[in-house]
Design a binder for these strands. Structure first.
Lengths: 350, 350
DNA sequence: CTGAAAGCGCTTACAG
DNA sequence: CTGAAAGCGCTTACAG
């Protein structure tokens, strides 16, 4: 129970201005509909009264009466504001904050649902989800069930990152990792690499599949043979022997952190990067360096992803759901390959 | 207008369970007051009905009916999620997120008010402030007027950082910079320093004053003579000559960033740190290094500050405002001086 | 042009 | 023990 002091209401404004409460509402919302035409004099009187008071509309009442809120929910499947998650979430949150300021809305972070097994649940008995006009979903590993339910309920939302639910049309804005991966593979091939290791996590996700599919295609074309190695089940200390066994000269890592770990393992074994073995990440490498040199990988427009996601959400919120089909609700943004200093033609391990 | 699909309400649950809507509300809120004693059988029937539906209470309606929301507002006077502000805001936001999860509340970031002259305004025509149970205020430079108005309105809030408004009792949680500064001055004195430069911004704030007062006291005790230099009006290229002119052997910088800039200026002039001149910051130096060595300064418990601020706010929200006077609403947390590698006995500039 | 009335979904005295 | 009713502060048909 919050110890609220009574706040100024429209009724009080109405009394001061000598009009009805309805009129105050009309003036505030600039309603000039079919049979409403409030003379400027009246409007002015109301505005004066408001000006002199500290009136602020109660957002709860507005919401309850069916209006929108200018509040966008932000749901992250992992803690978003911890130092560890900043590498991934930082640019996205930054982009959201800027875009939110642009369109004048507040951001409601659903921090209340406790993180269980490393991931939060969107729906729980006391979710404040519906207080928001719509919701942005962020996370390396989203729950497909949540997305489907949101679609079923007709609640406006946008996922950040490509999704491929088959049972529901999920709006998303993501990065085109398939194209980036193919470009990087081509670059490696052009440098003479023929055999590669792909270091990855076991967990599946649409964007993980995108990378894998692009590698698979290259493999089948005969451009670059891949040996897949899971970092979840393989000790990286074995990496050198795996590389030697596969006759590989390059390591593709699913993301920059795996690439860093791999580089560490190679350094420990006295293997020179990139003279003997090249390393490249299939993820954003901004700010990631390996022994002072720029890690090879992608640059991805994550600020833009966030801004586009919020823009799309805004359109969903303001469009009747019947017309959502006309909207371009699934968007992949192009990134840029950054060859960096850890990818070159390499001798391999003898 | 959001395209809401109708949601399940208490009335529908009531119909299913064959009870009145009031009873549903009672069960949900576990009301077992004076003349309410709902038999377990009825409770169970209602719970069943809820279980089988997708019922979630409408937060707007609850709020309008006078309950609390489990939503805490977060107001930052500068953009909080940009890379530049992470050094300051990062640990605070991290602490807030953790504490919010602990106590089960969501965080509403007031990102909508545009930043004007580098700072946001809390009160504006469409503020969603009142949707929150209370509000945490963050920022290097808060508006005293906002704080006073919040106190006047009886709205629960806590400022992060010491405040010294004289016209209102402002609840805050901050760092005890005065003590830290004194400790650092003593350490410098013990190392033989007698003359120092204080590099600072012009802008005033309680925490800036705390530092200044501690330096002033040392100056008057004759421990360490200070020459004050504003980085806003002085080109740091002149720093070496200023130091030489003052016969100083140490530079105190208001924060780590100024310290870094000062170090850069000295390096450009070929002056050795700390052999010739020591540098120390009067702010948190976590993660700040100067040419690979640890910058001297403070370690401040910013996660704890955030957690305490939220805890205090929670107590304000749940305490009738008449009893706020009994609460310990102004708290300074102790930090720790980190001598680091840039503070030692220095020769000075000849 | 303006106001009385219904309704949004909840909670909480207040009668039965 | 349970339900009908009032009220939270707003918006929006609907009558005047």
């Amino acid at each position: 129970m919050s110890p609220k002091t009574r706040n100024v209401t429209q009724r009080e404004i109405a009394k001061i201005a000598g009009v009805s409460q309805t009129t105050v509402s009309m003036v505030l919302n600039d309603r000039d509909g079919s049979n409403v035409r409030i003379p400027e004099a009246t409007r002015e009187r109301v505005r004066q009264a408001i000006e002199q008071s500290t009136y602020v509309a109660d957002p709860a009442a507005r919401r309850l009466a069916g209006l929108d809120n200018k509040i966008i929910g932000v749901f992250t499947y992992e803690p978003a504001l911890s130092p560890e998650s900043m590498d991934f979430y930082g640019p996205l949150l930054n982009g959201l904050e800027r875009a939110a300021e642009q369109i004048g809305c507040d951001l409601l972070f659903f921090t209340s649902s406790p993180v269980e097994n490393g991931s939060r649940s969107l729906f729980h008995r006391n979710t404040r989800l519906r207080l928001a006009d719509g919701c942005i979903l962020l996370g390396q590993h989203m729950d497909g069930g949540d997305l489907t339910r949101l679609v079923d309920e007709g609640f406006p939302f946008v996922a950040v990152g490509r999704r491929d639910e088959t049972d529901a049309h999920v709006p998303y804005v993501g990065i085109d990792y398939a194209t980036l991966t193919t470009e990087l593979v081509d670059a490696a091939t052009a440098l003479g690499h023929t055999d590669a290791i792909y270091l990855h996590h076991d967990r599946e996700s649409p964007t993980a599949n995108d990378r894998r599919a692009a590698l698979q295609a290259a493999h089948e074309r005969g451009d670059l043979r891949f040996t897949h190695v899971s970092v979840d089940t393989t000790d990286l200390a074995e990496l050198p022997s795996v590389i030697a066994g596969a006759g590989a000269s390059i390591v593709f890592a699913q993301d920059a952190f795996i690439a860093e770990d791999a580089a560490g393992a190679l350094a420990s074994a006295g293997i020179a990067v990139p003279a003997q073995v090249s390393i490249t990440a299939l993820g954003d490498v901004s700010g990631h360096r390996i022994e002072g040199v720029a890690l090879s990988g992608f640059h991805t427009p994550r600020l833009q992803v966030a801004a586009d996601a919020l823009g799309l959400l805004q359109r969903l919120v303001t469009t009747p759901s019947d017309d959502w089909a006309d909207l371009d609700t699934q968007r992949l943004l192009a990134g840029r390959v950054e060859i960096g200093d850890t990818l070159t033609s390499s001798a391999g391990i003898r």
